[in-house]
């Protein structure tokens, strides 16, 4: 595993960015409001909404094809000591992208990493996992298995 100079792996960052992007805005806002000392930050990219082409593979194999466009909002934040956080979240919620980017910046900062990881990400992860599981269950219920009957001789 390759750690960068701040002590986290690319995979770890992907994970927390995914959790931040997939959580509800009100949960992120709660965590933010609970922070005793709010860090100073500035916008490198203010939250802006655009569309992204989602590509996928049918059944998880074969060539990927353009599945469709989704609306996404992105934001890039710089906290006072220079760490830069980014967020790409589905939908139109500017505040969601902003908070996710702030937390991403804080998580990259060795000074804040442990605190945010324990108090924010781990808590968000529980509801994120639950939410994902629900969606997976709902989707699984609609699954259709195709099969071909062999014609008798």
């Amino acid at each position: 595993m390759q750690f960068n100079e701040n002590g986290y792996t690319k995979r770890q960052r992907q994970q927390w960015m995914g959790i931040l992007a997939g959580s509800l805005t009100k949960n992120l806002e709660n965590s933010w409001q609970k922070m005793p000392e709010k860090p100073e930050y500035k916008h490198l990219h203010k939250p802006e909404t655009g569309s992204i082409m989602v590509r996928g593979r049918a059944g998880g194999s074969g060539n990927s094809f353009n599945f469709g466009e989704v609306t996404a909002t992105r934001c890039t934040i710089q906290i006072k000591n220079g760490h830069v956080g980014s967020a790409y979240v589905l939908g139109l919620d500017h505040r969601h992208a902003e908070l996710a980017a702030i937390f991403d910046a804080l998580l990259q900062d060795p000074l804040h990493h442990c605190e945010i990881s324990n108090s924010v990400v781990s808590r968000l992860k529980d509801s994120y996992d639950k939410h994902k599981e629900e969606i997976a269950k709902k989707t699984a219920a609609t699954k259709v298995d195709f099969f071909t009957m062999v014609r008798g001789e």
């Binding site: 500035k42 916008h43 490198l44 203010k46 802006e48 710089q78 220079g82 760490h83 830069v84």
Partner: peptide
Amino acid sequence: DLNKLTPGFSDPV
């Protein structure tokens, strides 16, 4: 070098 970046337009549009 992301850490040295400064913001661009304050109101991009």
